[in-house]
Design a protein around this nucleic acid. Sequence first.
DNA 1: GAGTTTGAAACT
DNA 2: CAGTTTCAAACTC
Length: 402
Amino acid sequence: MDEENTFPGLVYSCGKDLIGSSVVPLSYTYTPFSIEIPNDCINISHPSSLHHQHSPAPHATSEDQRACPSVWDHDFNTYCFSRPLCCDPSSSHLSQYPPVCYSDGLRLQASPHQFLGHTTASHTWTPGGAVQYDASSAELCDAVASLNSEYTQIFSTRESIRQHNQTDLGHSVQPTFYPVPPDIEIVGQHKDLMRSFSEKSKKPCHCTKSQCLKLYCDCFANGEMCSDCDCINCCNNVEHATDRYRAIKTCLDRNPEAFRSKIHSSSGVEGDAKGSHTRGCNCKSSGCLKNYCECYKAKIMCSSMCKCVSCNNYIRSVVKESAVETSSHPDYSNTHHRTKSSVSCITDAVVEATCSCLLAQAEQAEKEGLSEVQAERATLEEFGYCLAQIVHYMFKHTHTHR
DNA sequence: GAGTTTGAAACT
DNA sequence: CAGTTTCAAACTC
């Protein structure tokens, strides 16, 4: 059930996934408002002109610029910072501005400005457009500190928004300060990360030895703090922000993509059967048909990335299943329906599985940097292979049941 | 609910 | 990078 979360200036429609500190905005309506960034954090005003493609942030002192190099991103009407902001967990001001949490790759858009030229007052959030708030200052530090130099952050300031309110919208608006960023969009490659932050329902963990600071812990792996869990010696919380930060850093050092979703999904929705596992599974005993298997658990087919043994989670299994289903169906027991039975092997599941394979192949080709022609060829070959499997099982099934 | 199985993560 | 150990979830009884 959705929940209407009304902030003056911004009307959020939030999804149910309001567990811990995560909110999934489904839609929002914009009216002028502003946010405040602590002075000792960063204080850069919005430029009066937005015509520079990438220029140093106006009003930033040279010291600011050295300490926190930034450029104005014309495409997004935002500033891009190439290094962490507000990284000092001990900084006292943060407690005054607690409920903002950004994770890796979050992009804060200078919200009012993005509406320049837009007449629509209502926008729909992208699936990955998670907003995290109600998080502690420690979490803010934690999350912001976890940004490394390759990530970008975009902030807008009260001043800039006030300017905009007064000039661009043609009327003055009394500033109201919200700790919640007006609009957060995920930057490029970290969409998956935030998707995992926001869309997975929070299940309590039961960790006993990892202190919930290793990827064994689902909460930690999902980028969430533990709440209402049954864990022992938990350090995945506000009280252990420093330890948590160290743990995050360790994981990212080991694997920069540690907190990204391991599922590539073409539709952006996990579990839609049209995706692939980034690294593939390594199952040996489960046949990839139990939830031990990450592919199966994510409701996707195993792919060429997998190193599993005796896998049954792939297209042939689906075709086989469909064949068995149709053959056992009483409607197809007579001769009249025998031909139709074969055709009925091509069920929705088979079609989905085929699409899944093709998509996986296309993604693989893209990853390998193949040319368009080569990618097309590889995908067609995969399609041929899929068809061959379907035909093979259709015929095999027809012969066995004659 | 206790014990077992499983495979990812972590370690060597 | 491969083999081993640790870990917590999934599963079974």
